[in-house]
Design a protein around this nucleic acid. Structure first.
Length: 542
RNA sequence: GCCCUCGUAGCUCAGAGGAUAGAGCGCCGGCCUCCGGAGCCGGGUGCGCAGGUUCGAAUCCUGCCGGGGGCGCCA
């Protein structure tokens, strides 16, 4: 069954009313009509701007048109409608009877965690999500965790909205960086000075002490990269990030796919030779400068490998859509990638590149040079996996963020992680008390929900009804932090309810207790879905 | 210099064409015969600047100012 959709009910009533006035719905000036939740309670539960956008077409003033629509709707009101009023410049405000919220709660409980706020928008299309993809030359930093948490939460949103998602890590296991890594290992092993620009962390010495392979930079580099990658994998596992595929750059270079890709681009007249190197004429497809594909020493550039990789994604494996999530430091790479992929014949729009902004810590700049580099591992052991995820998903990834660790170290309400998890723990606690007292929850069908009339109760219910919109918006906007914002609001409503409305107790009549038990169950479902999307545990006790 | 991105409360951030711009922290003050006080309630400040589009702009467009990032035969 489908969750009750009040927007559809109201939009339907408006459509019928417009039809009665002889106004076609599809050609309105001033943009599409909206039916949305009122920002202010005094404006009813829902409101619509339809009279504002249709007034020119109708040849009547917005308020006049709104009144005409209101009259028609009043004459045959849809279910749950208490009143419809014209307000402001011509808004229609719909005030609903609380039965709307009671029916919604029934729907939510019946659908449950697995079906409430689930959509088929993606239609089973296959999306490849590439993220983290950090060079296996050192431990992950805080930014990798931040962008990784973003991407993984986005994957969960896409899955809930009907896409099939492959999570993939592109492993830069070849090229100059690996050789440099190997040189650093070899230098450390024999007590020599690390090479200029080489890798110098403690992990280099640790690795070097157990390296028993040949005195060959590439061999040593590959050996070290494998071990570092294993550590990266396990770090990501601790914050709930699991990849379906670890795609090796070396494998694509060795397979001949790079040459095939360059041939493909050459056929389109986009490749030329200069100074012994092979160049991509990317300026012809919208880039700011041409780029080298094959260096004069014969080795392919990172771009060439990446283009072959993207050709593989689209033209070999046939993903319908690809989303790359890169850190801000990969920014310079984006325009050439987009341009070249389009030049391969992949329609613009099938490749999306999301760039995460830089992250800093409130208690000190994060800088490799200054030696204040903070590893993701140390962050996780400091504040825990849940806080690491939630902190990363607190705000938009488009904005450079400052993480305040002091707050999430506290075990109190100021800490958003505790705030939302505690709400869930309280729900579980209520259920434990219920069982201890031998109270049975009556079948929902036999419970009268109309006794839920306290403002605290209604707030929780209203919030719950927003979740489907939140999921859809967050997915479409690629903005998982919107789920976080909602979860925090729901938790807030729940704490307020819990404070003012005792569920079980001497003064609480049986009927009200039963209704409240179901409200608590609804809140549990909403919190579980939200936290699940964020990859944050929903604990039963804390 | 060019490209991208972001400027919202003292701080960290929501709001992304709608009506009176919201939270948390910090600061001040209330509330414990109560399923977990790890909580709840109240108190006030703000859309970087200037134009434009629109019935309506924090939101879209242009310019400027400011922060961050990028512009390698590195990845």
């Amino acid at each position: 069954m489908v969750a009750m959709d009040m927007r559809a009910v109201i939009a339907g009533a408006l459509g019928d009313a417009l039809a009665k006035l002889g106004i076609p719905e599809d050609v309105l000036s001033g943009g599409p009509p909206h039916v949305e939740r009122s920002a202010v309670r005094a404006h009813g539960e829902w409101s619509s701007n339809v009279a504002l956008v249709a007034s020119k077409r109708a040849g009547r003033s917005p308020r006049e048109l709104a009144q005409a629509l209101a009259d028609i709707i009043q004459a045959a009101p849809p279910r749950h409608l208490r009143s419809v009023e014209v307000a402001g410049p011509g808004f229609l405000n719909f005030d609903l009877h609380e039965s709307w919220l009671h029916e919604s709660l029934r729907n939510i409980v019946e659908l449950g965690e697995d079906r409430f706020a689930v959509f088929g928008t993606g239609n089973g299309e296959h999306v490849q999500l590439e993220f983290v993809s950090a060079n296996p030359t050192g431990p992950l930093h805080v930014g990798n965790g931040w962008w990784g948490s973003y991407a993984d939460a986005l994957a969960r949103l896409l899955e809930r909205c009907g896409w099939l998602v492959t999570r993939e890590y592109y492993v830069n296991d070849t090229g100059g960086q690996i050789k440099l890594l190997g040189e650093s290992i070899l230098a450390s092993r024999s007590g020599r000075q690390a090479p200029e620009e080489g890798y110098k962390g403690d992990y280099i010495a640790t690795l070097a002490s157990s390296y028993e392979g040949p005195e060959d930079a590439t061999a040593a580099g590959r050996w070290a990269a494998e071990r570092i990658l294993e550590n990266i994998r396990s770090t990501l596992e601790t914050i709930g990030i699991h990849f379906d595929e670890w795609f090796s750059q070396a494998s694509i270079e060795e397979s001949g796919a790079v040459e095939e890709t360059i041939d493909l681009l050459r056929q389109r007249g986009l490749v030329y030779e200069l100074d012994g190197a092979t160049w991509l004429r990317s300026t012809q497809v919208g880039d700011s400068r041409d780029r080298v594909l094959v260096k004069s020493d014969g080795a392919p550039t990172y771009l060439a490998g990446d283009l072959a990789y993207h050709r593989n994604k689209f033209l070999v494996r046939g993903f319908d859509r690809v989303i790359d999530v890169f850190g801000a430091d990969h920014h310079g790479h984006v325009s050439s990638l987009l341009a070249a992929v389009e030049a391969m014949g992949v329609e613009r729009g099938r490749l999306e590149v999301k760039i995460g902004q830089m992250v800093s810590l409130a208690e000190g700049r994060m800088s490799k040079r200054a030696g204040t580099f903070v590893s993701l591992d140390s962050l996780i052991s400091d504040i825990g996996p849940d806080a690491t995820r939630l902190l990363s998903l607190l705000s938009s990834m488009d904005q450079a963020a400052t993480l305040d660790l002091e707050i999430v170290r506290r075990q109190s309400m100021e800490n958003p992680v505790y705030y939302v998890q505690y709400a869930h723990a309280r729900i579980s606690s209520i259920d434990r008390v219920r069982v201890d007292r031998g109270i049975t929850r009556v079948d929902l069908a036999d419970v009268d929900l109309s006794v839920l009339a306290h403002e605290r109760e209604l707030e929780v219910l209203r919030r719950l009804t927003e979740l489907p919109d939140v999921v859809l918006d967050a997915c479409r906007e690629r903005a998982p932090y919107r789920v976080t914002t909602w979860v925090r609001k729901l938790a807030g409503c729940f704490h307020g309810f819990y404070h003012d409305c005792q569920v079980m107790g001497d003064g609480v009549p049986d009927g009200l207790m039963q209704a409240r038990l179901w409200l608590v169950e609804g809140a549990r479902i909403g919190l579980s879905i939200g936290l699940g999307l964020l990859g944050v545990r929903a604990p039963e006790s804390m």
